[in-house]
Design a binder for these strands. Structure first.
Lengths: 139, 139
DNA sequence: CTGGTTTTGACAATCATTATCAATAAGGCG
DNA sequence: CGCCTTATTGATAATGATTGTCAAAACCAG
């Protein structure tokens, strides 16, 4: 009963597809991508692979404001955060050491353990900001 | 055509139920609470009222790690963050001025506008930490 | 009260995700 | 090399939250 994790091309395919996508992507989106690429992979398998990668620490997962789970390849064992354009999906990795400490501090000050802080900033990137402004001007 | 927002007992009921619940609560949970309290309110109406309150700034909304939308009565003007026990739901409001500034700073440094930072810390409160420890010890 | 409009509410539709379960394929062992 | 055990896959059903639909009811003004 030694965990016995088998090596399948499907898992590799998901890992690779995740790695070659730029920002965060939903499981559904990744599934579509894989299908486009010719892999006859199953949807359920994509979900399982993503969950597995997330547990193993090879992928980052977060909830979009719309309630979808988004995933991203995350090579670093380190813990970092993101600045995500809520219009075009552009993602920038940001440093958050100060916030890290703050979260730890606040958590333990209240007796909490295992703080999993959700520190992601959604906004509009420069281009989308401009678009939004002109759209509003004409409205 | 002045917005014409009507005053219905249903909206009040949702507002009140939200106010009297301790921490964050899901729309479904709030619906159950209201039904228990005797209000024959409809589920769709609860969703609409919550969305409306969130837009008006009277309610805070966030995504739980499980992907549900959680709501909470929130003082209209202030913007604050939360420390939430992911086991028992205990919620503590936390000050985050430093993080506020940091988010603004990071966002504008990257050309982003309208930063909606998601800064919530999920953890295990003291009681649940103890429980988890003993559970693991016996496992 | 009456009219015009908004809002409600029951239910269907949608969407993402998870469970089911037989068939497949991986990996070890003889 | 081929077999056997068992993890894994994948099509589909099930689930669960949320949103859309639309006729009926409620609200406000005149």
């Amino acid at each position: 009963m030694t965990t016995a994790k088998r090596n399948t091309w499907q898992r590799e395919a998901v890992r690779e597809a995740l790695g070659s996508s730029d920002g965060f992507i939903s499981a559904q989106g990744l599934y579509s991508n894989l299908r486009d690429g010719g892999s006859p992979i199953g949807l359920a398998t994509v979900y399982r692979a993503l969950a597995s990668l997330a547990v193993e620490g090879e992928a980052d997962s977060l909830q979009s404001p719309e309630g979808e789970a988004l995933y991203r390849a995350c090579s670093t064992t380190g813990h970092h955060h993101h600045l995500i354009c809520r219009n075009c999906g552009l993602t920038v990795e940001i440093e958050a050491d100060a916030v890290e400490e703050w979260a730890q501090q606040v958590a333990s000050a209240n007796g909490f353990t295992e703080p999993q802080h959700v520190v992601d900033v959604f906004g509009l990137c420069r281009d989308c900001s401009a678009q939004a402004r002109s759209a509003q001007a004409s409205a």
